[in-house]
Design a protein around this nucleic acid. Structure first.
Lengths: 105, 105
DNA sequence: AGGATTGTTCAAGTATTATCGAACCATGGC
DNA sequence: GCCATGGTTCGATAATACTTGAACAATCCT
């Protein structure tokens, strides 16, 4: 089985608006995005809004965000760091992330 | 059974961002919203991107959009007119609709 | 090497959503 | 009243998505 240290990320050119909107349409995922807007975080640092969340569930939330092109998940040390793909998203969908992050909870 | 001529619409104060994002996250629904951005349309006039869509399916798409606070559905004559709740959405989620409508298909 | 740490993947169950025909409801016009 | 028109609702089925424990993988540290 292939190594899994590096996960696949879609190129922004193949990211569809509806996929991004869907990824952001879940409260838990949106909250994660809000946290990542402050800067990259490890998975452990992220998702503090619900500390009881099992790691498999959390991993799945990140997978949806990653496959939608919203976050980047990169190995670092024995863990992983999550980045919001902010600049790329801003170029592809100008104003979208800003308005979502600015909106009231 | 109660009359169904007037359908319930959520007040913007109870519309959640995630519900709006979800409503917009389906390609067919997003396309409808794009059409309505040009002005109110009857259901028959709307959804021309897929003429074969059964009316029950179409009605369901509008229901999701209506319940998410995205469109208003009002009786007119023997049919109904659909409006994008643009001003209200702009006040509640500034810039969101603009960025979504501006984005490439 | 071995163990602790940090996540990912798999699989199975549950829940939500989509689709669409058929039945129904309301209006307009004859 | 009666019928055609335009649309909603119901009910059943199919398709997606969510949740989680358990197994596995990669890295660090001693």
């Amino acid at each position: 089985m292939a190594s899994v240290t590096s996960l696949p990320h879609p190129d922004m050119s193949e990211v569809r608006l509806t996929d991004v909107l869907f990824a952001l349409s879940d409260p838990a995922r949106l909250e994660i995005v809000r946290e990542l807007a402050g800067g990259p975080l490890s998975m452990a640092e992220c998702g503090t809004f619900n500390p009881a969340l099992p790691k498999s569930t959390k991993s799945h939330l990140f997978k949806v965000l990653r496959e939608a092109g919203v976050v980047r998940n990169e190995p670092q040390g024995r863990g992983r760091v999550l980045h919001l793909r902010r600049d790329e998203l801003d170029r592809a969908f100008p104003g979208l992330l800003d308005s979502v992050l600015a909106a009231a909870v």
